[in-house]
Design a protein around this nucleic acid. Sequence first.
DNA 1: CTTAATGTCTCTAGCAACTAGAGGTTCAAG
DNA 2: CTTGAACCTCTAGTTGCTAGAGACATTAAG
Lengths: 145, 145
Amino acid sequence: MLTIGKLSKTAGVKVPTIRYYEEIGLLPEAERSAGNQRLYGTATMDRLSFIRHARDLGFTLEAIRDLLSLSDTPDQSCAAADQIAKAQLVAVRDRLVRLRALEVELERMIVQCAQGTIADCRVIKVLGNHDLCSHEHNQKDQAVQ
Amino acid sequence: MLTIGKLSKTAGVKVPTIRYYEEIGLLPEAERSAGNQRLYGTATMDRLSFIRHARDLGFTLEAIRDLLSLSDTPDQSCAAADQIAKAQLVAVRDRLVRLRALEVELERMIVQCAQGTIADCRVIKVLGNHDLCSHEHNQKDQAVQ
DNA sequence: CTTAATGTCTCTAGCAACTAGAGGTTCAAG
DNA sequence: CTTGAACCTCTAGTTGCTAGAGACATTAAG
């Protein structure tokens, strides 16, 4: 049986985050020692690794909750899991497109900065005037995280 | 003079967001009409467009606050603005690298999904077992937004 | 001139996904 | 037996907004 600290180290998830996952029901309530400390077995370890890995891949906790409930009922078709992963891929590609556009524009801003005073600083100018930025990032777009 | 609604439409920033920016001091306190409604001139319009554009480029509100205070004192060197933009570029590139890795892994997961049952679903398996994922996304990495 | 619809006001609370801190208890090593 | 690390619960804070309640302002139509 692992204490929360050991589990934290092994899974690469911080201690308060583990407690948080328990609180929101992503992890089951842990067994407790005589002194009320949480104890974990390999099942929770696996579940936590799953969560960790999915978080690395950018899945939201909600999506992870769905994936976990799917994996708890292994007899059904995996179409739903596939669907979640595909939606995630679409989101990732969308962010990629936008980030590449940002990269290009930031490069342009920086390269053209003449190292003069703020008064003719390209960075400030481009931010202040959308027309100066040759790139097509729609003003209606949301910021890319 | 524009009402907050017109400003919102023109700048592409939602009404509550404008009030929020005022609250946190990114925008100055607005003039008021006889009936206590906010009124804006072109100066605030420009400032809001600046903020909007910088948010599009992924700058945090803190970075934007710095950029704005720089642009308020146009006589100094633009090195600081350049610095902020460069840091932003580094962050963007970092996110790009991680997102590309995620894209590759998600593609692999999905392609290999045999449309069978959950029991042999590639998506679930890869998430549950880090060794199955041929890609090098360090378990210590943070999730990419 | 009145009425209705829309716009605006303030205020509080909520979202994701944690993180930080206070103040107290338990455990393992020496 | 003591010390110090690890653990407990609880509350509050983070970022960048968004949603809703209940009240007042403004505008367009009849």
